[in-house]
Design a binder for these strands. Structure first.
Lengths: 258, 258
DNA sequence: ATACAACAATTCGTCATACCTTTAAGACGA
DNA sequence: TCGTCTTAAAGGTATGACGAATTGTTGTAT
């Protein structure tokens, strides 16, 4: 009953079992603000006692949290929560924790603001650089969107695939990484966007816009690709804001057992 | 004057001693491409033997590398190098390792490409949002640049401070994080840029450009701030390319003991 | 021969315990 | 008041043993 669902989270994190439990639990506690920056965590033996695990496991979990910038570990001093500006926000786990702790809205808005900046630029680069495989990926994503107008989940996934493909086609390693880090989080955002009661026409319009981006990239028209992509992102932004306002808030996706 | 030298790396990583040694060594080995993606690392006991440390320390180091996305650890299978697209490129250590392993040039160019995208946008946001403290930081950085025309190192640092202040003033958590992650690496880039024999006039022109950005932000003229900032970044880009071509390559900065 | 079930071997995962190293903080003396 | 010494608290490292997961193989029945 415990790993029963893995709802949308990446279980590919290569860490399982006890440590994963500790990392998740403490990570969420910190991101959720239950221990404030500057404050101390219990000592390693104490944590071990709390979770009924050995100090070894606690320490390995702490190393991971430290690598994510959440905590600072100092000998003789103890383990202290870092200021949020040190948190590695380009980390899928931290993004997910924000979401699960109900602090996802602000992050989502910042993220969309960033997408407004990055995605048009990525589309422009893609127009000049995309190779054959990447053109194919783009087209495939569009077609899948078209085919899945009635399946919100699959539609969202195809939508995501399209945007990731654009990042990839930009041939910039940072943009590529950004896409892959953010993809889990973005999938959630897309699903929320769809909760805004958008009729079938709205979805079809969305597909058409995406298709225009695709064709602009295909023709090598960077400027048009960028402009259209900006429209796509802004369109999504307003859907998201609408969905957030209309109550169906983030947290209904983040519930889970434990 | 004792933290005075810390060559250029951030030793603030809260990890010291044995583990740090292992992390650095293996991290550089992987980023340097000496073990290819998909290949296996030695088993934990073997690594322990190689480095003359206990399995405990090896494992804690591995956890960190795994959190950075460099390796994938699986029970009974072993530890395998991940594909580069999984590497967390928004990580100061990984950026530094790229640099130290002589693979920094490509990364630097991708990074500058990203700055061309992000910084004008950040400047535009800053023009609308910067608070009083942030205005002060910007002004202070400009003045320091002006004062340090003869001290390349200090000039570079002030230059960096200015750009970081712009990210901060954008009030977007992702942009802020990006600045802080990239700052170490960027400092190196700025120093390299200065190796392009730029006379005093060139530096003064640079200061003047930065100042125009500052004033545009001050007046709340987002568009002008963005345009001028783009000029600044492009100016830096051409200096960097010139410096890279003229031989004085990256690696003379990355030498160190050990 | 093929399919499937049981088993063994390997590698990471966890545990318990002991001791080392660093460093904050108080005691002490100049 | 200042600098030095002592000490105790917290993390850092070392061993050795056993647990758990997964792969590959062996063996058996069809």
């Amino acid at each position: 009953m415990d790993n029963a669902y893995e709802p949308l989270s990446g279980s590919r994190s290569s860490i399982r079992g006890l440590q994963k439990t500790i990392i998740e639990s403490i990570g969420r506690t910190l991101v959720g603000g239950k221990i404030l920056p500057g404050e101390f965590l219990p000592t390693e033996p104490e944590l071990g006692a709390n979770y009924n695990v050995s100090r070894t496991s606690v320490r390995e979990a702490m190393r991971v949290l430290s690598a994510k910038g959440l905590i600072e570990i100092r000998q003789k001093v103890g383990t202290r929560v870092q200021e949020p500006e040190h948190w590695n926000i380009f980390d899928s786990d931290i993004l997910r924790w924000h979401h699960e702790e109900g602090r996802g809205d602000a992050v989502m808005l910042d993220l969309i603001e960033l997408r407004q900046i990055l995605e048009p630029a990525a589309a422009k680069l893609a127009a000049n650089r995309a190779n054959m495989d990447q053109h194919r990926s783009l087209k495939l994503a569009i077609q899948t969107m078209q085919d899945q107008l009635d399946s919100p989940e699959d539609f969202a996934r195809a939508d995501l695939d399209f945007h990731l493909a654009v990042y990839e086609a930009s041939q910039n390693s940072f943009l590529l990484q950004f896409g892959s880090v953010v993809s889990d989080f973005l999938r959630r955002v897309f699903i929320i966007q769809q909760q805004a009661v958008r009729g079938r026409e709205a979805l079809e319009l969305d597909v058409q816009l995406h298709n225009e981006v695709y064709e602009a990239i295909n023709r090598g028209d960077g400027q048009l690709a960028a402009d259209t992509m900006l429209t796509v992102v802004l369109e999504g932004k307003s859907s998201l804001i609408e969905a957030l306002k209309s109550g169906a808030n983030s947290n209904d996706l983040s519930r889970r057992g434990e």
